[in-house]
């Protein structure tokens, strides 16, 4: 709520002029918007790249579960006086390690993951009820607080994104091999189990930083939607990863921009533009057929 008040205060002095450059400059005069753009961009690039592997490895449910584990962590952290980000990171990382320990492709064990997911959500509700402060903390964890990101969080988010992207670039070829052709990779001595483990930890940290932007409940819009759309656009992994990060960046930027000049939540715009991109890629084959027929 606090963030919405900040945004409404900013909106009262700035209205949309239809001069995009001018409107952008006005928007970026506000430090909270600059922070939102920097952190949002870092998370979008990271989520777009990691999301490609989440979708390709069919680990969407595991990523979803990790965000709920993060909810319990963030809510618990607030109760004991830590920052939500600290709680998010702690819980998602431990959650990823436990998931990895479940065994081969532990992230695919739907029923076990579902059971843990609902328990974590319940735990989060308990922590929220124990917290004596503002209800806005819970709202932020569930739906994101992109407009209320502190300078320290921006530095941490950008730093985490850079480190994880470098690690993923270094391991890209092995990760692709293990994700698309695990059996043959295994037969050639590629440590597929270790890669699976490491990937879950990467997902955990990505979820933790992405929750700040989009929240626990809407995390799919950055982690899965852009990648799912990109995969429909290209069967070449490098191009699909590039497309996924581009879509994630675009929907974040457009969402922030539109959200600044409208009284509705930024998270809604990010999810709505992501959904629109995905629909467009779903409609493409029909459009192609129509063009060919006509």
């Amino acid at each position: 709520m606090l963030n919405n008040q900040v945004l409404l205060a900013a909106n009262s002095t700035s209205s949309f002029s239809f001069n995009i450059i001018y409107d952008l400059l006005v928007m970026l005069r506000y430090p909270f918007m600059r922070n939102a753009f920097i952190a949002g961009s870092a998370v979008a690039i990271l989520a777009g790249a990691v999301g490609y592997f989440i979708v390709s490895r069919r680990s969407s449910f595991a990523a979803h579960a990790l965000s709920h584990v993060g909810f319990a962590g963030a809510a618990g952290a607030v109760v004991v006086g830590l920052t939500p980000l600290e709680g998010l990171l702690g819980f998602t990382t431990v959650g990823a390690i436990v998931m990895g320990a479940l065994g081969k492709r532990g992230e695919l064990r739907d029923s076990q993951i579902g059971i843990v997911l609902s328990f974590m959500l319940g735990l989060g509700v308990l922590f929220i009820s124990l917290y004596q402060g503002y209800a806005s903390e819970a709202y932020s964890i569930l739906f994101g607080q992109i407009l209320g990101i502190s300078n320290a969080s921006v530095i941490f988010t950008v730093g985490s994104a850079v480190v994880l992207l470098v690690v993923m670039r270094l391991a890209l070829n092995l990760l692709l091999f293990a994700s698309f052709d695990e059996e043959v990779a295994n037969s050639q001595g590629v440590p597929t189990r270790l890669i699976s483990y490491a990937f879950l930890v990467v997902v955990a940290v990505t979820v933790a930083v992405a929750v700040q932007i989009i929240g626990v409940l809407l995390i799919f819009s950055l982690l899965v939607t852009p990648a799912a759309a990109a995969i429909r656009m290209s069967g070449r992994p490098r191009i699909a990863i590039l497309a996924s990060t581009t879509i994630a960046l675009l929907i974040t930027w457009i969402g922030l921009f539109v959200g600044f000049y409208q009284p509705y939540p930024v998270s809604f715009f990010i999810t709505a533009f992501g959904f629109a991109f995905y629909l467009l890629t779903r409609l493409k084959p029909f459009a192609d057929r129509f063009v060919v027929q006509s």
Partner: peptide, 27 residues
């Protein structure tokens, strides 16, 4: 191998699929 963990959502071209082990030889 006898089985591969692939399904309808595995979107990768035949060429890229065949190139996977080649590319994985060097990081």
């Amino acid at each position: 191998p006898q089985r591969r963990n692939l399904d309808q959502d595995t979107v990768i071209t035949s060429r890229e699929f065949a190139l996977l082990p080649h590319r994985a030889r060097r990081l």
